[in-house]
Design a protein around this nucleic acid. Structure first.
Lengths: 198, 198
DNA sequence: AACTATACGGAACGTGGTTCCGTTTTCGCA
DNA sequence: TGCGAAAACGGAACCACGTTCCGTATAGTT
C-alpha cells in the first residue's frame, strides 16, 4: 500500500517504478488513430499511415502491439463488447425468434463497417488466429442465450451452435453491399426457422 | 481474303503476322504452373515462385497477365466451367430441391480448395473486381435453372436470386474447416426451403 | 540535480509486386 | 536459305510495406 495510488491492483511487485504517463497517452492515441484508419482504409492499412495519424513513430506502435493483429484486436474489442451489451435490450424488444434475427443483423452492420476484417478473420493467416477466439468467446455465450430462448419458444430448430452462426454471419457480411449482406443473413436465419418445433 | 490461311476466323485484319508459337507455349506453361502454386500456397503466392516453377521470368508473366487477377481468372476459368458442366448430371440424379443443395455443396468443395480465393473475391480490392463477374456470369444462369425447377416443384421459396446464393456460398466456404463450411451451406439451403409453396 | 529505466522515433532490412529495357527468338519475305 | 523487324523474353531495378534495431529523449526516482 505504498506506491500505486489510483489504479486498483496492478501485476508484478518486482519493479518499483510506475508505468510512464507518456506511454499510456501514446497507447490511447495510437488506438484512436488506428480505429479511424481501419474504418477508412480497412484493416490492411499501412502501419506508417497509422503512425503518422497518431503522430508517433512506427516503433512506438510495435512496442505496444508486437503483432499487427494485437492492434486490430485492441481496436475492435470495445465494439465487440458493445454488441454483446446490446443483446438484453434486443431480447426485450422482440419475440425470441425475431431477437436472434435482429441481433444478428446488428452484428452484420458492425462487421460490414470494418472493411477487410471478415476476410482477415478467416484468412487462415496464423497471425490473426487469436481474433476469432476473442469474437467467439465474447459473443458466443450471448448468442447462445438468444438461441436457447428462441428454441424454447419453438421458433427455431435446435442443435445450431452459436459459433457456427457467428462465423457464418461475419463471412456473409464481408462484402461492401450492405443490402445484400442483410438479405443473406435473413436467408440464413430462415434456415434456423425451417424445421422448428412450431 | 488473302492472307491468314490456317486459323479459321481470327480478329483484326489490320496485322498480317500470326501470334508467335513460343508465346502461346509459355502462356500455357505459366497457367499450369500457377494452377499448381495456387493450390499449394494460395492465390497470394509470390509471382517469382510461379515464374520459377514455369521456368520463365516474371516479365513474361506480366506480359500475358497485366493484372495478377488476370492470372487468377485464367487459372480458375476451367474449373468454373467444370462446375457448370456438372449441373445437368446432378439435376438428373436428385429431386429438384435436393439438386440445388447438392450442386451448391459441390461448388463449396471447389471454392474451399482454393485457399484465399474466397477472401480475394470479396476483399473489395478493385483489382479482383472482374473475378466475381466471371463467376456470376457463368454460374448464375446454371444455378437459376436449378432454382427455377425447385421452385416449380414447390420445394423451395421463390424470389431468391442465384447471384446472392453464389456469393453467400463462396463466402461461407472461405474457411479451412470443410465440415463447418458444409454445415453452414446446408443451413442456408434450409433457409430456401422455409416458406416454400409446399 | 543527477541518474537510470523506459519509451520514442525513424533509419535500416527483408520481402514481394510491378515496371523497364537490353537481349534473344520467331516469322514473313526475298 | 538468309535477313530484318516485330514480338517476346528474362531478370535487374524500383517502390511500397511490415518489422526490427538502436541511438536519443524523457519520466520518474533518489
Amino acid at each position: 500500500m505504498s506506491a500505486s495510488p489510483s489504479t486498483s491492483a496492478s501485476s508484478a511487485p518486482t519493479s518499483a517504478r510506475r508505468p510512464r504517463a507518456d506511454a499510456q497517452r501514446n497507447l490511447a492515441t495510437v488506438v484512436a488513430a488506428a480505429k479511424e484508419v481501419f474504418a477508412e482504409s480497412g484493416v490492411d492499412a499501412p502501419m506508417r499511415e497509422i503512425a503518422a495519424r497518431a503522430g508517433v513513430g512506427v516503433g512506438t506502435i510495435y512496442r505496444h502491439f508486437p503483432q499487427r493483429s494485437d492492434l486490430v484486436k485492441a481496436v475492435f474489442t470495445t465494439e465487440v463488447d458493445a454488441a454483446a451489451a446490446d443483446a438484453p435490450a434486443i431480447a426485450a424488444a422482440h419475440s425470441p425468434g425475431d431477437a436472434v434475427a435482429a441481433w444478428l443483423v446488428r452484428y452484420t452492420r458492425f462487421v460490414a463497417a470494418k472493411r477487410g476484417l471478415g476476410a482477415a478473420l478467416h484468412s487462415g493467416d496464423t497471425a490473426y488466429a487469436a481474433l476469432p477466439d476473442y469474437f467467439l468467446g465474447t459473443l458466443g455465450p450471448v448468442l447462445r442465450d438468444l438461441l436457447d430462448s428462441a428454441e424454447a419458444a419453438g421458433e427455431i430448430r435446435s442443435g445450431t451452435e452459436p459459433e457456427d452462426l457467428l462465423v457464418a454471419v461475419s463471412r456473409l457480411s464481408s462484402g461492401q453491399d450492405a443490402a445484400q449482406s442483410e438479405r443473406l443473413v435473413h436467408l440464413l436465419v430462415d434456415g434456423l426457422r425451417y424445421g422448428a418445433a412450431r
